[in-house]
Design a protein around this nucleic acid. Structure first.
Lengths: 210, 210
DNA sequence: AACAAGTTTAACTAAACAGTTAGTTTTACT
DNA sequence: AGTAAAACTAACTGTTTAGTTAAACTTGTT
């Protein structure tokens, strides 16, 4: 039988590996990530990755599930069905920005996954995305039915919000690296919850309200 | 002296290399791209890349300049300064979507560059982006000064539009691959100019108009 | 035709890489 | 204390990769 302390040691090693892997995959992408570098970052022997988790693909799938799967679940479970469509749409933008700030690796990993056409995206994760898209679609259709929202293509709204937030946050390293960018851009940070979220909420609601 | 026909032969080889490289870099990213695969795709000997252009980094920089630099220039030169801020903002969205459709490699390459924090982004290309951001900023500030637009953070509008368009277009392979996505999403294509552009123009203008 | 400059090729090298293995230490349980 | 399973380590292997080189071919010029 496996005792508690052995279990916790195992879990600790796995946690170190997954944290390091998420960081390296976010920085360098699947192809750019080096197993030796992940091991070094995690301060464990490289063979431990193969022992506890598996090869590079298995490790990547695990990282995706860890980061995206949990976020998606949290997202949907916390939506209050009794709120108005306006409030729900605000909730979505607010929850999205907070999730992105809480896990800064989400934006780069999602962007890379999209750029590669989802070559390494497990179907379960695609299902998580589908749930969120369905949620936003319902909010917008409910609003249109109630006559508070204009008729829109929900996926376009979803794209503007999700893509916009990812773009804003993801552009931070580039914005801050190069001196060529204008000062009004250079003074912005990488935080999207808070003021940025408020402004996006206002803009999007103004756009869709009847 | 270098004659016409030698020159055209040289140019032809370089063109083959750059076209192949753009495709492979878009599909696989900088780290994922293989010099042998680019050579095979271009139907030339791998040594020709090093002879005519240089190493992998130089090739990537050349591809970026070819795709982004030209687009950015075209963008700014075609803006009609005599138009109203509303018309200019519409022009920007319209030009962006047409550029994205004309060059399908732009979206994935830009997304990867952002995800990597611009690790391989030459400063000249960053300057091209800065010009476009400056253009959008001017349009929005001009509109606000004239009292036709509300006061906004221009870079947020820029992010919503650019990120939104890239997200919509970039998500096409994932949307069409997996059966889990709802039908209202599955029926959408990857084209962003035309109907998608019109709807984004309407939404964004509605959002920023006083 | 002879030459030189530009272009192309196939074969090569050295380094980096994912993944393995045999042997060692740690842990939990009796 | 003894033991067996689990966790770990260092050194290794075979392959893939970016980049090179020397020799051959092509083209324009005299």
């Amino acid at each position: 039988m496996v005792s508690k302390s052995v279990e916790s040691k195992r879990e600790k090693t796995i946690r170190r590996i997954l944290d390091a892997a998420a960081k390296i995959f976010a920085e360098s992408g699947f192809e750019g990530a080096r197993m030796d570098e992940i091991a070094k970052q995690a301060k464990i022997n490289k063979a431990m990755i193969y022992y506890h988790i598996g090869d590079k693909k298995a490790l990547y799938a695990q990282v995706l599930h860890d980061i995206i799967g949990n976020a998606a679940e949290h997202f949907i479970n916390n939506l209050d069905e009794n709120q108005s469509p306006e409030q729900k749409l605000k909730y979505y933008i607010n929850a999205l920005t907070r999730t992105m700030d809480q896990n800064p690796l989400l934006a780069p990993i999602m962007m890379r996954e999209q750029a590669s056409g989802g070559q390494n995206l497990p179907e379960i994760i695609a299902g998580d995305f589908a749930l969120i898209i369905g949620m936003v679609t319902n909010i917008l259709e409910e609003g249109a039915k109630q006559g508070v929202f204009i008729k829109t293509t929900p996926f376009i709204i979803y794209s503007l919000v999700t893509g916009g937030v990812m773009f804003y946050k993801g552009s931070y390293p580039v914005r801050s690296r190069y001196a060529v960018f204008p000062e009004n851009v250079k003074k912005l940070g990488d935080r999207v919850s808070g003021e940025v979220s408020s402004e996006i909420e206002k803009l999007i609601l103004k756009a869709v309200k009847k």
